[in-house]
Design a binder for these strands. Structure first.
Lengths: 211, 211, 211, 211
DNA sequence: ACTAACGGGACAGCCCGTTAGT
DNA sequence: ACTAACGGGCTGTCCCGTTAGT
């Protein structure tokens, strides 16, 4: 789930192959450390040490510390299309798709180092720079679309506004994940995510009628 | 709304009177800066400069940077009892009390520098130290109590679990406030808080029956 | 000749007094090192070590390395008015004044560390920044004026153009001083300056007529 | 005028032919960059980039950065015999030869990148190493010889000492060229060289007598 | 003959905290 | 209670040079 190589690509870059691997390794290590300690508490030296390289070698792959952070954040965002793609394979009803999406995201936040690191770096974006991709809005849009589909299929409570609901879902999810990390090191994330399902999702769904 | 002076009651340490005032000023300035830029991006020198003092003077009042941050966070937590005390003056029904509390908290997050700074420093707690007061749990308890009262008064949907609902409220609120800060510098906080009321609170309340 | 305190100033800054002295010491040490090794080959650490301080202390007095270099260059330029002032005390004829000025400048380049360092830093100005004072032109003007006075007094060969002569004097002097430094570590500066006097000045002067 | 290719005479090492060409290209590019920015402000990477190679390729031809600088300086000195050789083709009187030489040198300093770079690197020799060829003395000798010939031919003012005059010529020329570069980027070099001719050369020549 | 990748060391600058002095 | 001055350590960054591989 946290693989950092890209073996599917053609093997015909004999020279760059090692570099690609090294770069991916560095990115993954950076994600680990940034995720654990935060941007300011991770030195390039820490990354190099864990990768068993020197700082100079790290600087061959990344121009500076910010670029490393940026790469982690971009990797974070690159994950979502993959995940959503997998979900669209299964043919689910609109509301089930929404629920499955949230489940999948929760899983990713619980297990995927890059996802966690990207989220944390977004939290600390003021220390990095302004050229990070804008956070949250993408998910607000995604969820709005899913909610609208559910509404059109008659699976959503008519009183629910898709856009507002999406914003609250994103906020609640983000807060949940963060609180779980701070309080229990993500140990109770599943429980807290269960709260989200029961408190929010349950009320949104229109029960399947019997006719 | 963001007073930082000593109370009108004359203190029995006339000499330290100025010191207390200076300390409060420093704390407030630190709150401003920490809230704006985050812990790591604020130097002691910045605080001293804005206070028109020297670094040494700051170190007379606070042993080190962490203690300054700690004092801000403690001031943050000291605010809530005051606010909740005011609310208890008004005699409101349980659910109205819950709603009023959330309103009041939203207002504080929008207007009060110390509240904002404390929340941000909690976000960045790994950079500071572990001896910050545990966040979030206090609010989870507070809201649980309010929800239980509403349930006991028959104003809460019976299907709603007070504890779980409280956790989600806290998460959503925290996420909401953060997202609003990042995306619009808190400009759309009222709108997003409106989302919270309509999406979450509306579904929780049992409409007053007519008999 | 290379004193670096300013004892003439009033003693009424008891606190800053040490700082002024320290700053002057640092500037002098920086001049020594820059003069010996050049800008790029001198580290802040070198300066701090020779001053028996730490880098942090140096950075209290100078914001960065460039500012140190700039201060040295400015000290270089501040010297000339003093020197020219002294010369104007002696009442000399125009041409004698010119000759005496050149003598005095040669002496300064031979003995004064700040003068040497300033000249060298100007040589290396591309490594520093563009905000150094413009070099050479001041001297071209000064010497032009002196030559014009000599011409007006009938002491200058009528065929000599003051401005062009001044430019050549500056160029020759600068080159001479540099060449002497490179070839002999300034040991033969007097000899080479003697060349300048005999080759250039001798031909410029109109011999005092006997009537 | 600034050719850097191999001569037309076919070499007997056909394989190294490309290498020689590459080496010459690198040397010329290095001269450009060193001349523009100075030794310390040019990285091997800069040279490689402009040559559309990699750093490693540069290191194949030159052991290190110093050797590159040394090669540029040696190329500088290799130019002069060529230039003087051309001049000796024309049969000129001794003083005319002197004047023509200076003209030719001024032209070279104005147009030839390698000449400029070599001179600049000599200026910055302390950053490089001590094994650069000794500067200035060669020209002092050359000009001394030319002046002695002029003296022997009765074309030089008897009062002029050839050696001293040569030293001043070299110093003035070197200073002139440097000042022109700093102040105007060599735009006024011709004017300043005109000064040299009028101020110095004019006074040295004995006008051709009519008898 | 040339490339990609990596090693390694040095340096500027930053900033927290201390201390002598008043 | 406050200031000027100083100490000290860490880190991002730069850049020279090397090496495996082709």
């Amino acid at each position: 789930m946290t693989t950092y190589d890209t073996p599917a690509t053609t093997r015909r870059e004999p020279k760059q192959e090692r570099a690609r691997h090294t770069r991916a390794r560095l990115l993954h290590i950076a994600a680990e450390l940034f995720g654990e300690r935060g941007y300011a508490n991770v030195g390039i030296q820490d990354i190099a040490t864990r990768a068993e390289m020197t700082k100079g070698a790290v600087y061959f792959h990344f121009a500076n510390k910010e670029e490393l952070a940026l790469a982690v954040v971009q990797a974070h965002y690159a994950r979502w299309p993959e995940i959503l793609g997998e979900l669209s394979q299964r043919s689910l009803g609109p509301f089930d798709m929404l629920a499955a999406t949230l489940d999948r995201v929760a899983e990713a936040f619980r297990d995927d180092v890059v996802i966690q690191a990207g989220a944390r770096l977004q939290l600390e974006r003021t220390m990095i720079s302004e050229d990070l991709p804008q956070p949250y809005t993408g998910w607000e849009k995604n969820l709005t679309v899913l909610l609208e589909r559910a509404r059109d299929a008659g699976e959503l409570q008519p009183s629910a506004d898709p856009a507002a609901t999406a914003r609250i879902l994103v906020a609640a999810f983000f807060g949940l994940q963060h609180i779980s990390e701070v309080l229990t090191g993500r140990a109770d994330m599943d429980n807290r995510f269960g709260d989200l399902r029961s408190v929010l999702l349950a009320h949104l769904r229109v029960p399947a009628t019997a006719d």
